[in-house]
Amino acid sequence: MRIDIEDLHVAYAGRTVVAGAQLIAAEGEITGLVGPNGSGKSTLLRTVYRHLKPAAGRVLLSGTDLRRLTPAETARHVAALPQERGGDFELTVREVVAIGRTPYKRAFAGEDTTDRDVVARALADVGMEHHTGRRFTELSGGERQRVLLARAFAQQPDVLVLDEPTNHLDIRHQVELLALLRAGRRTTLVSLHDLNAAASVCDRLHVLHDGRVVASGPPREVLQPALLAEVFGVRATVVDHPLTGDPLIAFDHRAPADASDGHNNGDVPVSAPSGVSGAGPGRSHR
């Protein structure tokens, strides 16, 4: 399944946070949202997993407006890992992950063999299979993140919506998570702060700035020095990663970009760099 976002507008208290967003998460591809803090990434994702209702525009799941589906139908197709984690769960690790099976169960129905197998596989996928009896409240931030990701996997969704999924993870578990996403080949819409992680894992990127999608395309085409200066306010060059060949962004940590680098502090609309198209199908995965 694919996600199409059409002319999406989202507002809080009369202030527009997302303005006319138009993008595609193509079937079986990893589509990344990148942009500075406050650019609208999380707000856009919240409309996709129906935490927010758009002021205008639509989110389509393979051509069907998500608002026409029941919450249970949506949950069988779309699983989310939001930034906000809610309250602590007075449940074991396994019990938290088993919540992901709820969309498939009738009221008061118990677990069956399929449920147990799916939960076990989800826990193994995130490396938490040896912690099933621990209380969720006892876990570290990174462990909680992995358990909540396993809960999303247990939903067996067609589409994953992940908001900063590498938060709280150490470098090894970040690498393992990104490898897991690549191997899964689910339609995935993910926001990432780490631009090098985004360049490595994503088939296609959409850059948000002040609530608008200002560039879309394969990472190598999108993540150009001029855009990095203009949108993120940093000096950088892009080279080939010596191990993987992916685009690798080398930042100047001694000084931010200035006006001569193309950074305009948001006063002038940002244009997509040459060769970068609007929303459309992504590249084939490496």
Rank of each mutant, 00 (worst) to 15 (best):
L149K: 04
T92N: 09
G20H: 10
G20N: 10
G127E: 11
V126E: 03
R46D: 06
P218L: 11
E138H: 13
A72Y: 13
I249G: 06
R146P: 01
E221P: 00
R67E: 14
R172W: 04
Y12W: 14
V276D: 00
N167T: 13
G278V: 07
V190H: 04
P103C: 10
N37M: 12
R67G: 15
S274V: 12
R286L: 12
H130I: 09
T166M: 05
D252I: 11
A80V: 05
Q155R: 02
R134Y: 10
H130E: 14
G278P: 12
E143R: 03
A21S: 10
H51T: 15
D115Y: 09
R50M: 09
L169S: 08
D258N: 13
T166P: 05
G233T: 01
Q174I: 13
V270M: 04
R101G: 12
D203L: 04
D170Y: 04
V213K: 00
I24N: 10
A259Q: 14
S191H: 03
A152Y: 03
I5H: 04
K41R: 10
R220Q: 13
A150G: 05
T102D: 08
Q156M: 06
R121F: 06
L248K: 02
K105T: 03
I24Q: 15
G245D: 10
S191Y: 02
L227G: 02
T188E: 04
H241P: 00
A26I: 09
K41P: 08
A229P: 04
L180T: 09
T188N: 09
N264D: 12
R85D: 13
E230A: 15
P157F: 01
S274E: 15
T187C: 10
R76D: 04
L8I: 08
D170R: 04
D194F: 05
L81N: 02
G127H: 11
H173Q: 13
G280F: 02
G14L: 09
S42F: 09
G40C: 12
V118F: 09
G100Y: 01
